[in-house]
């Protein structure tokens, strides 16, 4: 019973979130630190907590591709772990040592997945999106798209500046001073490029601003 007019459903939901984060985090750390067979303990705990706190998410653990991936994780170490001599010995002796290492890794992957599902399923995506959107998410897609398109321009700046420096004597003498000069020149041209891009962005958005309802924000530098 929650006193003081607090919504009991909200309090229960908050408790679930805290439990999910604590159990998820603890099992994750334990799975990374423990070896075979103790690693099974955090794995079991994470899966049991997932069943109790969010049964619907357990279905994600029955994905056939996940189990195919885990099978690869189990089998591959037989050929890659240890020195060539050890590998030959392991394969000759049934590969028990490498197989145990592979199973341990697979259990760790499974625990990590269960812990992530546990934590992720209890935190509302809208809240995460709101936080990201408020600080870094806004306009990030546009920035990524512009960044990829600017790669040739950036490489051209690097090429041009290096060429200019080479024509003035290159790095034969005063290497450190010339390196500093190169970094400053590239930096200056990069900042100038940002100004050009910002101006182009504002120009491109001018029709939208002209027809939009909102007033332009008064703050900011004048280009």
């Amino acid at each position: 019973m929650v006193a003081g007019g607090t919504d009991p459903h909200a309090a229960r939901s908050k408790g679930r979130v805290v439990a999910a984060i604590v159990i998820g985090g603890a099992t994750l750390v334990a799975a990374l630190m423990l070896g075979w067979p103790l690693v099974l303990l955090p794995a079991g705990t994470a899966i049991a907590a997932l069943v109790v706190l969010n049964r619907r998410q357990v279905r994600a653990l029955f994905n056939k591709w996940l189990w195919l991936g885990l099978a690869v994780v189990v089998v591959v170490p037989v050929w890659v772990i240890g020195t060539p001599g050890e590998r030959e010995d392991a394969q000759a002796g049934g590969g028990l040592l490498a197989l145990t290492a592979g199973v341990t890794m697979a259990v760790r992957v499974l625990t990590t997945l269960a812990a992530m599902l546990l934590i992720g399923s209890c935190i509302a995506p809208a809240a995460v999106s709101r936080v990201l959107g408020r600080f870094v998410g806004r306009d990030l897609g546009l920035a990524c798209a512009i960044g990829v398109n600017l790669l040739p321009a950036i490489l051209e700046i690097l090429r041009r500046t290096t060429l200019a420096l080479r024509l003035r004597g290159g790095f034969r003498r005063h290497r450190l001073a010339n390196l500093k000069r190169l970094a400053t020149a590239v930096g200056v041209q990069t900042v100038r490029l940002t100004e050009d891009v910002a101006e182009a962005l504002l120009l491109a958005q001018a029709p939208a601003r002209a027809t939009g309802e909102s007033e332009p924000e008064p703050q900011g530098p004048q280009p």
């Binding site: 306009d139 920035a143 798209a145 512009i146 960044g147 600017l150 990069t190 940002t194 910002a198």
Partner: peptide
């Protein structure tokens, strides 16, 4: 616009 440009470049 400057934020987007600096981040992109």
């Amino acid at each position: 616009a400057q934020w987007v440009a600096v981040v992109a470049v």
